[in-house]
Design a protein around this nucleic acid. Structure first.
Length: 259
DNA sequence: ATGGCAAATATGATTTGA
């Protein structure tokens, strides 16, 4: 059985709803994890999505953040927010689909390394590690994916010199990502040969997309059994070329699972 | 050194993002 799981920071689901529905219609994506839906739960377009024959769970808030998971088959064991971290911001939703535990995150941006927001980011990542560690004891098939707001290495940055010392690329953030991966998770994108200068986000300004001046910060981390089952990981740049695009592109993995 | 763009909130300018 083939299973395609994708992550996409949509930067407002209100603005991008038609693009999301088109994506589920036009691709063979089975599970689509969204970040930055930027809407309250009472405004969530649940009817439009379910009328398209899709299943969905979501955790939203006013103005910022917010996450959702859309799938072609049923979702169970819904977890909203980290159970071990008091948080006003809606940044995590986890569900089980078939044998796969899907953990969808919108990691804190962190603004700059000497700010309160950066401290919040580091504390949030520490709590995420605890949570994921426990989930991996309960589930063999774990996918941790989303907008990590961390570029894993300088190969994931168009201009590392310019980014030196900034959030998204700092040693502390990269160490926190490494500690997550040390739980037994692999960066799916790097399981395969990939083109140089592969990015998942491009600034809206200065024609950054046309110049391919971007970062790879949207990641899919797989537990070992899923890494073995993974046959592909791709960044789909097509939606970034659309009218009124999100500044992020969808990233997907294809898993070939037994049973 | 600064702003560039986009979205939300709100209706003018500010906040946030990465």
């Amino acid at each position: 059985m083939s299973l395609k799981i994708a992550t996409w920071n949509v930067n407002s689901l209100k603005v991008r709803l038609s693009q999301v529905l088109d994506y589920m219609r036009d691709t063979d994506t089975d599970v689509l994890c969204l970040q930055e839906i930027k809407m309250t739960d009472d405004a969530f377009p649940i009817d439009t999505i379910t009328e398209a024959g899709l299943h969905v769970n979501f955790s939203g808030q006013k103005t910022y953040n917010g996450v959702a998971i859309i799938s072609r088959t049923a979702q169970t064991e819904v977890q909203k927010n980290l159970p071990n971290f008091q948080d006003d911001q809606q940044r995590l939703i986890a569900v089980t689909i078939g044998s796969v535990r899907v953990i969808n995150v919108y990691v804190v941006n962190g603004q700059a390394p000497d700010t309160d927001k950066f401290t919040y980011k580091m504390n949030w990542l520490k709590a995420l590690r605890e949570y994921v560690s426990n989930e991996m004891r309960l589930h063999q098939h774990v996918v941790l994916l989303g907008d990590f707001n961390i570029a894993p290495t300088d190969a994931d940055v168009h201009n590392p010199d310019k980014w030196l010392g900034c959030n998204l690329v700092s040693p502390a953030e990269r160490q926190a990502l490494q500690e997550l991966m040390d739980l037994g998770l692999s960066d799916a994108f790097r399981l395969f040969e990939q083109p140089e200068k592969s990015f998942s986000w491009w600034d809206y300004r200065q024609m950054a997309f046309r110049r391919n001046a971007g970062l790879r910060i949207d990641l899919i981390l797989l537990s070992q059994p899923l890494a073995s089952a993974c046959i592909e990981c791709v960044i789909d740049k097509e939606p970034r070329k659309h009218e009124q695009p999100s500044d992020h592109a969808p990233v997907s993995v294809t898993l070939e699972l037994n049973t």
